[in-house]
Amino acid sequence: MTVLLALIAQLLHLVLMLATAPLLAGSLDWLEARLDGRAGPPLLQPWRDLRRLLRKQPRWADAASGLGRAAAPADLALVAAAAALVPSFCTGMAFDPVADLFVVFGFLGLARALRILAALDGGVAGGGLLAARRSRLMLFATVPALFAAFTLALLAGTSNLDLIVVLQREGLLQPASASALAAAALIGVVLAADPATEDPDLGGPPLAALRLAEALRLLVWLDLLSAAFLPIGMAEAADGPVAWAIGFGAWAVKLLALMAALAVARRILGGHRPRAAAELLAAAGLLAIVAAVFALSSAVTA
């Protein structure tokens, strides 16, 4: 029975993540527009865009190769796999034994690398510039992300995400300040994420795949933040549907709060966000290193 519940919870989690990702992107766009004093697009606009793009024929540049054509769906598959491993409303799901924090970051990194390949496939100037910018961001983002993951794993004594969430929920990740520093570093990474710039020579379903992957990536980051640092209200998969419903409510509230905070931060940074990305990531890296050193030099209390 427990295994069955874990499987059902896993499937539900995956469906929830895939369904919520475009909605989150739409809500974020709407909120940012409202903060700017504009009416903003409808919340379901990303879903409509995806449907519209999926009805079209794929469009490729003359120079596009099979490798580049496979990059967009592979990007989506990798981000979806990462999404499947990060718990949302409950712990103890079917994939939790393989849900390692380093693997999640590895999948996201590989997906980012594939996006860079996709940008270079068309052989146009815009794609090359996009690839170079994404590459620089990837370099600067890896350090804070890996250090934050390392700090969490160090505090928990394991890099398994499910166990980290459980220990965090029980208040056993000590010292809490190291955990907070790691959280701040990850917030910096999320804030410095590449704004939604699209590959100039893609259209149709590949573009839909890339857009969905981008929305899902943002959701994975927010979900990771909420699960690893605010595991309030999360249910156990074995507890059944009632507990899941409570966990789902808590997850929705946390997601809304994080989304609002992200929109406000983006509003404050405004048009400077692309230029400030390197500084943000450098600061995030600094915080993450401080968190790791602090965790390493502090004695184990739990």
Partner: peptide, 21 residues
């Protein structure tokens, strides 16, 4: 961490610039 990032970027740059486009 830097090794991970640089490894990915080196591979992507070699494949993307030399073999794609």
């Amino acid at each position: 961490a830097l090794g991970i990032a640089l490894a990915a970027m080196g591979a992507v740059r070699a494949l993307g610039v030399a073999c794609l486009g």
